[in-house]
Structures are given as C-alpha cells and as structure tokens.
Amino acid sequence: MPKLQNIIVLRTFAIIAVVLYHCYCPWLEAWNWYKCEYRSLYSFIFETVLVGRMPLFVCVSGYLFSHLYLDRGKYHEFGNFLQNKIKRLLVPCMLFTGLMCLILQLNYVENIVGYGFHLWFLKMLFFCFMTTWLCAKYIHQIKLDIIAICISIIMMFISMPKFLGIGQYFKYYYRRDSRDNGDDAR
C-alpha cells in the first residue's frame, strides 16, 4: 500500500504543534488551574506561527478517513466503523478524562458530558466521523457540497453548547472561529 507522504508530513507538523502548544499552556495563561508568569514571546509564537494546529489536525483526519473510505474501500459497514471509532476515540477519552478527574479531584460525569479537558477533540472527531460517514453513504457529492456550504453559513451565527463535545463538533466540522475563549487549552 502506498503511503501518503504529504499527509504524513502535515500530520506530523499538526501533532508537534499541538504538543508544543500544550507544553507551553501554563505560560500562555491558557490554563486557569496552573499559574505561571505570562510570556508574551510564547503567546506570539503559538498564536501566529501555530495558529492552525487544530484545524489542520481535523483536516488531516478527515482526509485520511476519505482516503480509506473512497480509495481503499474501508468502513463501508456502519457497525464495524462505529466499533472502531468508539475504541479509538471514545474509550481513550473516557479513560484519560477519568485519570485527570482523579488527579485533580473533579467530577468525572461532568467532565465526560461537558468539555473533558485536553481530550475534548476526541469527542469532536467522533461526531465529525459519524456525520461524514452518513453523508458519504447517503448523499451524492454535489448535494453534499451544497449541504456543507449551507450548514457552514448557518453555523456561523449559532453558538452551540459544549454538551458531549457538540459545540466543538460544530466549531471544527463546519466552521473555524477565531479564538473561542481559550478552548484549545482546556
């Protein structure tokens, strides 16, 4: 099987950018539970040079799903697809959110149902994959493009709740806000 070299480079950059951002979050005033002296140089670097880290990460994930679905014929059975995404996205989210709740002595249910700390993106990706699978299976390409454009326009004017990661799902699936109250760091 041929490797997608360009995507591997983009994915590597996105992962490194996300990890670097989280390593320096205490100095960016992005985490309110750990205080460090604010560093304007770090803020400049991470808010300008690495500004597209999460949208790039989501775009690469979507591209790889599309490649596997269309080019390699994977994931055509919903049951297997759902099982794979639960195992790879929701189970790690639940386990590591539980670990964070244990360490910080916080309510597990509130964090799983709500934001979920640094693994909020796993719930968001889960909903993105489910939506994309349904659209790929049941909507023809031209109709899908028109629907995506219409939904994108509508979602620019609606603020969604953070319940089960739905807010982040709409933020990254349909639109990209400029800074959303430091959500990248929670």
Results as ranks from 00 to 15, higher is better:
L106A: 14
Q141L: 12
Y138G: 02
R179M: 14
G167S: 05
G182Y: 03
Y24R: 06
V19W: 00
L95E: 03
N84T: 15
K137A: 13
L68F: 11
I7V: 15
K171G: 06
F126G: 10
A30Y: 00
I8H: 09
Y115D: 08
D180M: 04
A17I: 08
I147V: 11
K123L: 05
T48C: 02
D71S: 12
I15Y: 00
T97H: 10
C150K: 10
M130W: 06
I151H: 01
F57E: 02
V18H: 00
V19Y: 01
L56T: 11
N111Q: 12
F78P: 13
K35F: 12
M156Q: 07
F163C: 03
L10G: 06
G62S: 15
T132G: 03
I139G: 02
R175C: 09
L68R: 10
Y108P: 07
G52T: 05
W31C: 09
N32W: 07
K3M: 14
S159C: 05
K3S: 15
D71W: 04
F96C: 10
I151Q: 00
Y34I: 14
L99C: 07
N84V: 09
C23T: 03
W27E: 15
K162M: 12
V109P: 08
R88I: 04
G182R: 08
K85M: 14
D177K: 08
R39T: 12
F46N: 09
T131H: 08
I15G: 04
S61N: 06
I146H: 05
V60L: 01
H67D: 13
W120G: 02
P55A: 07
Y42R: 08
Y34F: 12
L41P: 02
L28W: 01
D71P: 11
P161Y: 03
V19P: 03
M1L: 07
I147Q: 05
K35V: 15
F78I: 12
Y108V: 14
M124R: 02
K85V: 12
I86P: 08
F96W: 07
L164N: 06
E77N: 13
N80R: 13
M160V: 09
I149R: 03
F127C: 12
F81T: 06
W133P: 05
C150L: 15
N181S: 14
Y108D: 08
P55D: 10
M100F: 14
V58G: 02
